[in-house]
Structures are given as structure tokens and as C-alpha cells.
Amino acid sequence: MELSKKDILDIGDLSVEEINLILDTAESLKEISTRKIKKVPTLRGKTIINLFYEASTRTRTSFEIAAKRLSADAVNISTSTSSVAKGETLIDTAKTLESMSPDIIIIRHSASGAPHILARLLQQSVINAGDGKHEHPTQALLDMMTLREKRGSLEGLKVAIVGDIAHSRVARSNIHGLTKMGAEVALCGPVVMMPRHIEKLGVTVHHSMEDAIRGVDVIMMLRIQFERQGTNTFPSMREYSKYYCLTGDRIRLAHDDVLVMHPGPINRGIEIAPDVAYGPYSVILNQVTNGVAVRMALLYLLAGGK
């Protein structure tokens, strides 16, 4: 089976078969990163551009490493040192880059829908590395890969996603992905952090963390998005963490072998206690490792055979 898409913009648009194809491919490519010589020639001669309009450590590095392990040439553009700082528009930047014949453009942007503008405009494949509050599809794919690896299947898994759902692109991508793959998703957060009509996506909504995580197989904590909060969304960090921080005490409410996930970067002590983040239930670093594999899979599937 081949991926018939030009772009990867949202999980909402992927079928179960496509998600399985990506995860299967990622699993087989993961081994490359454990070799002594961590490189295969698959994408030799392909050019991949990382166009990041927002700060990023893991996603940008992960895409770059994924490209390099497949022998593609990866170019990073950060907006603070490019013509974007001179006021160039997204569309003009995109057309300029297109003229240099890349094969894939990976974009992160603070405005929802920015990758869709590029995808419409460009011949090249576009991968969404996170757009505003919309989606972060590679994060959901690496999360699903991690869960599949640890639990064999996503079918019937009880997953609680806790935190600022309204501002979270990770939550949206995971809601689409996990529900498609048969998991049961419970969302948890204060009402001001719950987007309207989210329950129509086939999830349950909770405002008490204790209710939400009782007996679950997976707890996915979200980072509080300081940079996306409006004014007065909630009174204080102190009060937020009192009700919604994943602590050693709270975790005992979940299933005995619960998995704790977090897309990073974490706000230590605010949504997750440090001892939980690096404790026995945590798979946070497995997520990072799988991130490289998932991104290798996408680059391979989009540019490999072509």
C-alpha cells in the first residue's frame, strides 16, 4: 500500500488504513536509529525544508534527524533570521522556497490553517508540524506508535487527555487519531479550557481530574500554553496545578500499569510533577524516540518512491 496523499495536514483527514500504514512503516524504520551507522540512502538527493515560524526543540530536531537518517538534505529556516523578519508574507516565502525545488516542506506556524495555504499553493508535499490550535499530526502519530508498541493495540484503550484542550493542537490530533483507532477518550480540564461542542467528536468531558483518570490505561498530560492564553482564563498557575497537576497521589487512581505521556516541553510542577514525568509509568522519552521514526516514515512515504 502506498500513501496516496500529497500532504499531511491533519489526522482528521487520514483513514485508519493510512494511520496503520504510517505506524507500520515507522516501526520498521525505527531500527535504523539503533544501528552503529544510523543512516540509509533511501532519500539521497531529496531536499527537505524545515520552515518554523514558532519556537521548537524536539519537533524541528526530530524532523531534521529523520531526514538525515534517510540521507535527505535538510535545510532549516527559522523566521527570526530569514526574510520573514523583514516582513515577507507566508505566500511570498513559500513561492521563493518552491523556486529552489525542495521535495517536502515542513511547516510550523502559530496561525491555524497556515499549512493548508502552502499545500494549496505548492506542488511539493507539505507536512504540518503544528499549526496554531488546529493540529499537530506527527505528535499524534508518535503517541499512537508509542501506545501500540506498549499495549499492542489501541482498540479499547482508555485514554484521559488532561489540560488546556481548547488551545491544544496535540489534543485535537490525538482525539481524531485515538477515536479512529478505537480508543476511548476522556477529556479533562476546567470549562474555560474546553472548546465548544468537543463532545461531538465522540469523547467524554470531565472537569474533575479524579473522575477523568480513574481506571484509565493512559494519561496524556498537556502543556499549559502560556503563549496562547488570553487574559483571565484562570486565576493563577498555583490554583491550576492544585486541581490539574498529575502528582504521585493522583496517579494511583488510574490503572495499575498506566502509561503517562506528555508531548513536551513540560512545565515542571504545573501540569506534571517531576517525579511523575521521569517515574516508572512515564513513556515521555519513548515518545521522543518514536518521533524520529514516525517522521522518517512520513518522509519516506511522501518522497520515497517518487
Binding site: 491555524s112 490550535k133 488546529h134 493540529e135 472548546p195 465548544r196 461542542h197 461531538k200
Partner: peptide, 9 residues
Amino acid sequence: GLVSTLLGL
């Protein structure tokens, strides 16, 4: 509404 939730706008 639901559409703004889906689009992340």
C-alpha cells in the same frame, strides 16, 4: 461552534 473547535480558530 463545532467548526471553530475543529479548525482550531
